[in-house]
Amino acid sequence: MLLKVENLSKFFPIKKGIFGKTYYVRAVENVTFEIDKGESISLVGESGSGKTTLGKTILRLYDPTSGKIEFDGKDITHLTEKELKWYRRETGLVQQNPFGSMVPHFTIFKILEEPLIVNKIGTREERREIVYNILREVQLSPEEFAFKYPHMLSGGQLQRVAIARAIIMNPKLVIADEPVSMLDASVRVEILNLFEEIQEKHHMSIIYITHDLSTTRYFSDRIFIMYAGHLVERAPTKELLRNPAHPYTKALLEAIPDPDPSNRFKFREVPPGEPPSLVNPPKGCRFKPRCPIATDKCDEEPPEVEISPGHFVKCWYAQ
């Protein structure tokens, strides 16, 4: 097992006025899961569901409010930035916006060399070798791209650089936060394929954060569904797509169209409304206000039930 997350919560304080009460945005609450070495996970949720916060908390870009994160058997929940040095080398991050994720006044070479310099890896020549190799690995010719500036590259090329930067220290875990959502459809597939290739080759674990359920099936072993800060369902990919158990997952699957001309003749059966505010979320199950099968029981937070091997659902009525 590579990563173990136990009852993890992350709240952001917001203060209203100087003497006002402090409120909390309960972005992630009580999340528990484990990830094996070399496993790829899709973490799916709408914007504001807490999926990005969860990813960044795992990377310790945020300090957890409560709960525990174990990486490779070591508790990293409360390590200081100094103590985290080794952890930074074992993890990588790919961000959503390829145009904003590169220092604009650095060349591609410098951008990729930075993590190595910061972590004191290799001599000048060795670093050069590493950077050139990694560029080749993401299918960018070093001769052509190493000394270009980010603004000279297309979104797809930049995202390859971002992937290269994330894996340059050969980490065990890469978190990719919506890595293709800003790219054109034709480029998306390329980048997703590249991810898959690299993951297999280096036997890395990947957490792929996305709002787009339809891309997940192509390369994730398991899918986690988040709603309003809660992890509501997690299951192997095929199982989840075939037998969604949580009413929210069902709604999500219903909402996504496949290209089909008969779509225009039918209405989609999706719940009305929108996700609740995370400052003052509903008691118990957070999907309750929109849920077609909710009862009074749902005012209590449902436990996570394993309805079939590896298929966990946080719902009172899951079968």
Binding site: S154, S186, R217, Y218, I256, D258
Partner: peptide
């Protein structure tokens, strides 16, 4: 044809392929 081939689908298993080159 290629555009349709690059669209991931939820309900049917099909291989998706990127469109080579840039617009």
């Amino acid at each position: 044809q290629k555009l349709l081939g690059s669209v991931p689908t939820l309900r049917e298993d099909k291989e998706i392929a990127p469109i080579p080159g840039t617009p």
